[in-house]
Design a protein around this nucleic acid. Sequence first.
DNA 1: TAGTGGTCTAGACCACGTG
DNA 2: ACGTGGTCTAGACCACTAC
Lengths: 249, 249
Amino acid sequence: MSDILTAGNLSFAPLYKRVKMRIMQRLTVGEWKPGEAIPSESRLTEEFQVSIGTIRKAIDELSAEKILVREQGRGTFVATHTEDRFLYYFFRIVDRNGVKIFPQSHMLSFRRMRADANQAERLQITRGARVIRINNLLKLGGKPVEIDEIILPAERFPGLTEEMLLTRSSTIYHLYQAQFGINVIRAAEKLHAVTADDETARILHLQKGSPVLGIARVAYTYNNLPVELRNSYVNTVDHDYFNDLGKSA
Amino acid sequence: MSDILTAGNLSFAPLYKRVKMRIMQRLTVGEWKPGEAIPSESRLTEEFQVSIGTIRKAIDELSAEKILVREQGRGTFVATHTEDRFLYYFFRIVDRNGVKIFPQSHMLSFRRMRADANQAERLQITRGARVIRINNLLKLGGKPVEIDEIILPAERFPGLTEEMLLTRSSTIYHLYQAQFGINVIRAAEKLHAVTADDETARILHLQKGSPVLGIARVAYTYNNLPVELRNSYVNTVDHDYFNDLGKSA
DNA sequence: TAGTGGTCTAGACCACGTG
DNA sequence: ACGTGGTCTAGACCACTAC
């Protein structure tokens, strides 16, 4: 990703890269929304006045980046945060047998506050800007496994209420998308082992002073724009964080 | 990867998939060795009697999987374990500022032994088969950060000696490749937080009972064949394990 | 049956690295 | 100057989905 495109200059980029960027632009402004089909390849040829091979190469890259999803015989769709996609890309906790199950989320608190220096820097907003802090407990198979502290820039989530989070039926990333048009497509995580503080230990049913896996995440939407901060602590007594290195998928 | 191909049946797979598999076959048997150039695309056209577009699509996938590396104007090469590649794909530890530096490895022990049930299962060998156990200490900027226990199936590493490991000048994956023709292309890791045992704490300059990040890795070569087991413990006081979710690269 | 994405071909021209 | 991979085109046919 770190090439001429992220640098902003695409005047001299290959045609298919420019087509790709024009498609991304239209996704960014919400012309084609998550779940919807984009125009067919042959229609895009007319629109962009390039050959179908060039269109295909642009879409190839976008679908490799999980921004678009192709379905033979049906069309090409803007990626949505279905449970599958969430489990596959953004939730890495597995049980001792390597099996991943869908977590149940329980909200512990919801509060509006101001960004401190660190949060502001990571979210690329000004210090003191309004943010929303959400604390969740995730259970797997009924057992408390992870606690999350989520920080959202309030400006990007206008009208977000506690009620909306309590009544949501699917993942929070799906809510960002459906309610605020924010499509999380990437996240960077830093993991470390720490001693659980007393409250964390209590909530995760661990003894005082137990080690937990800490995860600091920044989630991004199109154009590497940060939209969510998340600090998590995971009880890894019966679960692991799974990671596959060197895979393309 | 989990499609018709890994299932072994490729009679009805698309032509480019069959070409890809024929190329992989020749990599597996060592006809083209890491670092060497494979024949040019136009030469492969003659050899396989398919159009250049089909060859390109096959190579596209292999280079997306980091098995081949294209270099415009020069040719297409079998991927090698250079420092860059190692750092990028198989070494995830960064310092507090997110900067990755190349680790210095110090061998603590080298021993031949027999696989226990768990090792045998993960390496897909028979219980009691000969294995080699290597313990290394990794330092970053002179500070002890990670200890590794590496288990290798002896059969795949004939003639591996302590001496070879002590005198190697590059990464251990490079040694597997140069000395034994084994090219690690993928690894699966499970991470958890644990309390360091006393010896681990001592070696990593941690207080007794400190939390450390435990990593259990299985490394694979072509065709998902496991070739190395690795259990690591990382001092995450000044470092993190970095992971990028949802990226294609 | 019509429309979609998936495969495959054949050829032209460009950009790059090497001699 | 030559050979390499990179881009782009135009068209044919196949496989799948929906109506």
